[in-house]
Design a binder for these strands. Structure first.
Lengths: 229, 229
DNA sequence: ACCTGAACACCGTTCAAGT
DNA sequence: ACCTGAACACCGTTCAAGT
């Protein structure tokens, strides 16, 4: 637990456990922007080699800083990765709404958003995995991450609710519909980035388009009832 | 790389780098079943605490064996986890076909299989993650894992092909349909085991049933055409 | 307040040596 | 052929000490 607001008075007269070593290099401080620098460095490291490749020592070394300097700005490694995940959700949400708006909302906008979803995952696999991969428990300690994930989900809910008002999507709890739609695109995305589609000899984009098509005929309001099951 | 077929002759007369230490405990060998014992130990460890909790040292210690004894039976840690994944696919496939048969195939069988899919993932989250989680690259070196995954996929393909013959599912490449169906249940499963559903306040089983329902109305052959899009 | 550097308790993997 | 035990090159985290 990090207590930031308490003022700690350090005792000055303590028995020296070890003698002080002479310093080879002068100390260089980052002064204030180290937190941001650590975050950026973690971001590019994860982008290039995945979460597994992220080591605090390497991040520190690349920034010319001790391996434990990080602990002044993040509680631990998890907290650093959480911050990267939260940033990922912000970028993700921007791209989803952009696709939705650019295609003029409605049916075309919804399909464009589905394609954009899978494309984000395929383009940023490491980032996507941090956000969803179970490395972070979403009910965990970071409220920022939780908030960003929740806001992203509501982009989908709002889109579906609007389409219901316009008669493009059949009635029902928009949150329930949104969960189903999310599961579909999330399924395509994770199969794609985990290389499972190659086993099945399929391209991510092709499957994404097919999935969005099937999704539409599944949730679209139909002119003729097919009768009870 | 493990070369199993080459016969290596060890030189006998070598200069000793270090003097031999006296042995405290007599050597106890596992003789033949160590591979199986290692696999079982890895399986329960992963089941209890996930892949991250699996350490070769602990596995060896629990079996009363050196930490490097494992290297006689597996190329490295990855190979051990691959073997666990392959076993997972075998169990998975058994449960899927059992659900399909028990519900009398056809429409009911297909729905039962969908529910069973998500239930397997929720019941064995660590196992499921090993199989799909990207820890193993599926195009990797283990042909056994690849084969098991492929056979499981074909259970789904065969089920859909049979339903097409019986007029329960509309025409089209059954492999393409199977990929879509897989993506849907995989999406529900991964959202569930990564705790994302809790964020959305939904239960895995409820979403699974809803998803299978939507899936049906999406891929079922309809009596009345809704006209071109 | 912020950072260092040594220490601690871990990892997977290698390899000469023992039987 | 199978296993040991020391060694190697890593980890994240802690903490007294320096400025």
């Amino acid at each position: 637990m990090l207590t930031m607001s308490t003022c700690v008075v350090y005792p000055v007269f303590v028995a020296r456990a070890r003698p002080a070593r002479p310093r080879k290099h002068p100390l260089v401080y980052h002064h204030g922007n180290l937190r941001r620098a650590l975050l950026d460095e973690a971001l590019t490291t994860i982008r290039d080699g995945g979460v597994e490749s992220l080591t605090l020592r390497a991040v520190g070394a690349r920034l010319g800083v001790s391996r434990s300097a990080l602990y002044r700005h993040f509680a631990d490694k998890r907290a650093l990765v959480s911050a990267v995940g939260a940033e990922g959700f912000r970028l993700f949400r921007t791209q989803l709404t952009a696709a939705w708006e650019r295609a003029g909302r409605g049916r075309a906008g919804f399909e464009a958003m589905g394609i954009a979803y899978v494309q984000f995952a395929v383009t940023n696999p490491s980032h996507y995995r941090v956000m969803f991969g179970g490395f972070l428990d979403p009910n965990g300690s970071d409220p920022d991450l939780l908030n960003e994930a929740s806001r992203t989900f509501h982009v989908l809910v709002d889109s579906l609710a609007e389409q219901q008002r316009d008669g493009l999507v059949r009635q029902g709890d928009p949150r329930q519909l949104a969960r189903f739609v999310w599961a579909v695109v999330h399924g395509v995305a994770t199969l794609a980035i985990d290389g499972q589609l190659e086993t099945m000899k399929a391209s991510p984009d092709e499957l994404a388009r097919f999935a969005v098509e099937q999704l539409r005929t599944g949730i679209a309001r139909r002119a003729h009832s097919t009768g009870p099951a």
